[in-house]
Computed example of a mutant assay.
Amino acid sequence: MLNALLQRGFRAAFVIYAALFAVTAIAQGQESTSAHDYQLGSGDKILISVYDEADLTMETILSDSGLINYPFLGELKVSGLTVSGLERMVVEGLKGDYLVNPNVHVSILEYRPFFINGEVEKPGGYPFQPGLTIGKAAALAEGFTERASESKIFIIRGDDPAQTKRKAALNTLLRPGDIVTVEQSFF
C-alpha cells in the first residue's frame, strides 16, 4: 500500500516537473532566435560557399537594400531569408545551367549589431553574439551608471516592424538589431 502511494506521488511529481519544463522551454524558445529560423538582415556578414567552385564563393555584408549581386545569378533579395532558404535559392539558381549538383553552404560570419543606450557607461552599437542577455550587454557597455534603474529597461526588437517598446529584464535574450534603453532611477 505504501509502495503504491509512493509510486503515485512520484508519478504526479514527475508529471508536474515535465509540464513545468515544457512551459519553460516554450517560453525560452519564443524569446530566442535559433540559427534555423534566424532571418538575414541589413548588417549581417555572410559567407556563401560552393564546394569545388572558388569562383562562386563570396563573403559579403548585407546592405540596407537586402540585395546581393551573386555570380551568374545577378541580384538576389536576401533580406528576410533564413540561411537554409538562401542555400536553397542558390542551389536552385545554379542547378542545371551552371552545375549538375551544387553543394552550397551559407554561414553567418558576423551578426548585425545590437544597440544599448541610456544609463550605461558606454552607449552604442556592439557586435551580437548568440546567448547574449541584457545583463551581458550592459557589461559590454562597461556597466550601468550610478543613476541607472535595473527595473526600467526597455527593448525594441530589431525584427519588429511596429518598433514597439517593451519592458525587459536583465535576463532577457537579445537578438541582432535589438535596441535596449536603460532609464534613470529616481532614487
Rank of each mutant, 00 (worst) to 15 (best):
E183G: 15
V100K: 07
R147Q: 13
L170M: 15
E183M: 14
S65H: 06
E59T: 15
G93M: 01
V23M: 12
V90A: 02
I61W: 02
I68P: 01
R88W: 00
Y51Q: 11
D64T: 15
F186M: 09
L174E: 02
E110H: 01
L47N: 14
V91W: 04
E146K: 10
D55F: 00
L140S: 03
R157E: 11
E53H: 03
D97H: 10
L86D: 09
G66A: 09
R8H: 10
A54S: 13
D52T: 13
D44P: 02
Y98E: 07
Q30Y: 09
V78F: 00
E183Y: 01
G74A: 06
P130T: 10
I26H: 05
A139L: 02
M1Y: 10
G43W: 03
G124H: 08
D178K: 00
D52R: 09
Y111Q: 05
D159G: 12
A138C: 12
G29C: 13
L47V: 15
P130E: 08
A12G: 12
G118F: 02
Y111S: 05
V78A: 02
P161E: 14
A19H: 00
N117A: 15
K136F: 00
V100S: 07
L109M: 11
Y38A: 13
T181S: 12
T24I: 08
L173V: 04
T33G: 04
F72G: 08
H36D: 15
Q28P: 09
F10A: 13
Q28K: 13
T172C: 05
R157V: 06
V180I: 15
